[in-house]
Write a protein that binds this DNA or RNA. Structure first.
Lengths: 334, 334
DNA sequence: CTGAAAGCGCTTACAG
DNA sequence: CTGAAAGCGCTTACAG
């Protein structure tokens, strides 16, 4: 015997009311006589009725589902944001469709998520590809960037001022005597999302130091293993300090340098960017910019809920949020 | 002017065919005359028609969406599994509804996901709560466990033999002279999911060593910070070796011991369990069991696709898969 | 190869 | 406070 799905129709019949009334009870609409409500609730429990969210989504045009685009779930920076996003999402009873976007066509990822009729999208990434920006400006699905921002549009975003943060940290290393500060990051941070690189350059400029191409180290992505590969190049260079985008890279490179006899921070200073637990696995612990990762995620999801709440209404919602960052000065800087 | 959604009806009208024919074209059904197909395709492109997956889901009773339950996305063990799950899912054009289950009622998480009519569920967790097992045995939604297994039911699972792995690694440390091997894990691994603890106990038994309650270290969960708290207790004990469930704990504790003058592996051996990149951040690198994390995720999702493909048909599907593990012997063991 | 029609399980005005 | 009916945008037999 096949298990039969219990529908709102069954509940209505058993409770001797209309489907509309059952719907009202399920959705907490107050326009129901208490006695009726009780009866319906009893039948719901008796039949173990479970509302079908897909049917509801089709009828109401709201799926209570949001799309979350993440480059890679195993990257601590992004997964920390995701945790904040998830917490707020479940607080507001939204489910999350998560898409790992690395190595996929971002356009396809978007299309796939949008076909599921999500009520909104939180986008995380090393940068915002033009196609994604264009697509989302054309559509009316609410869209929020978490951990990055976009100057070329008025797309909502939650981020810290990475330019200021990098400028500050690089400036400090220079103040403490660094003459040759290197910059290490994955490709997108050189061409597409230059917030951090800009800060680095500004610090040099302010100190009257010319940009030295030989001190710019680029890797394909932020994964641990890429740190090992580039570490020898950094060791071979004449750098005496390093600012890194991505804790994975920072710890791998630092360990390599230390293993090869480099004294940190005496001979070589290092600054990382996310202050994930990784920075404390190096001896000495790495100094790092400390963005409020969880909060960036949480706030971006919170903004999304506001955006989703008001359809195309044009009330003011703070659209571009810049959160404060902290600095965690540890042993890798003087 | 409000942007109007283009439906299958609009396409049918413009192409002068029925909705059924458009549906056939969209779904790649071959029973369409090539000329008709071309015409429909042209109209689809012209109108920028995007099928509504929610409507499709309601009509076909297939959502091409699977639920993925994960304790915490920031845990490298689970996020590595998730990466494998995600890759295979998108290979088969499934979207993923991800639910962070930590600190939530697992029952509620399930209900929420099931209401979205997912075609199947992959469950990751430190253990399988009774309520979840009961609920899923009652329902007919395909269900697969990733990274754990369940003796008390015939629920599908993909895992390695952690009992054998722990037995082997603890046995090796004893062979190399360890007299007092400690065991460190989060709570669930003592009471609910004892695979690893069993292996530890078997190794002791085989060596004729009595279980010493003072060498059992329990923490609330596997997060980094808990490693610091328990590390001093381990240092204060008379243990001369340690088997750890969770790389986060292993690296934190190892670093603490080293910082306090303990010589690894000369005076103290350590074995970890996941061989995530973390084990290489400690000096010396930690020896570890090396489960094929990505594959565990990938295979579990692959099995789920099979299960979803055949509804309640009873063909044989390999239900409980045990993958091979490797051992990565590094500097923390003799 | 194609179409007409019913139906998936809900919500939403509208009417009373 | 409650119900009848239309409709959300698709798919699925069924018929031809």
């Amino acid at each position: 015997m096949e298990k039969q799905t219990v529908t709102i129709y069954d509940v209505a019949r058993e409770a001797e009311v209309s489907m509309a009334t059952v719907s009202r009870v399920v959705n907490g609409n107050s326009n129901v006589r208490p006695a009726t409500r009780e009866r319906v609730l009893a039948v719901i429990k008796e039949l173990d009725y479970r509302p079908n969210a897909v049917a509801r989504g089709l009828a109401s045009k709201k799926t209570t589902t949001v799309g979350v685009i993440i480059p890679n779930v195993t990257n601590l920076f992004f997964s920390s944001l995701a945790l904040g996003i998830d917490d707020v999402a479940s607080m507001y009873d939204y489910n999350i469709i998560l898409a790992n976007a690395d190595s996929k066509d971002p356009q396809k990822v978007l299309t796939s998520i949008l076909s599921k009729q999500v009520d909104g999208i939180v986008y995380m990434g090393h940068y915002l590809p033009d196609q994604v920006r264009d697509e989302m400006e054309r559509r009316l699905t609410p869209f929020v960037l978490a951990g990055l921002s976009d100057d070329q549009s008025d797309i909502a975003s939650v981020n810290i001022d990475y330019t200021a943060a990098f400028k500050e940290m690089v400036g400090r290393m220079i103040d403490k005597g660094a003459k040759k500060v290197a910059f290490l990051a994955a490709e997108p941070y050189f061409d597409n999302n230059t917030d951090r690189f800009d800060g680095y350059k500004q610090a040099l400029e302010e100190a009257g130091i010319a940009l030295d191409e030989n001190l710019l180290f680029k890797v394909e992505d932020t994964r641990f293993k890429n740190g090992d590969d580039v570490a020898k190049d950094i060791l071979a260079s004449d750098a005496d300090a390093l600012a890194v985008v991505g804790d994975e890279l920072a710890v791998t490179v630092s360990n390599y340098l230390i293993d090869n006899g480099v004294k940190i921070p005496e001979d070589f200073q290092v600054v990382s960017s996310n202050n994930s637990p990784l920075v404390d696995l190096v001896r000495p612990h790495l100094s790092s910019i400390k963005p409020p990762l969880y909060d960036i995620g949480a706030v971006s999801m919170r903004i999304l809920t506001k955006l989703m709440g008001k359809a195309d209404d044009d009330e003011e919602i703070e659209n571009k949020v810049t959160l404060d960052y902290q600095i965690n000065e540890q042993g890798s800087t003087k």
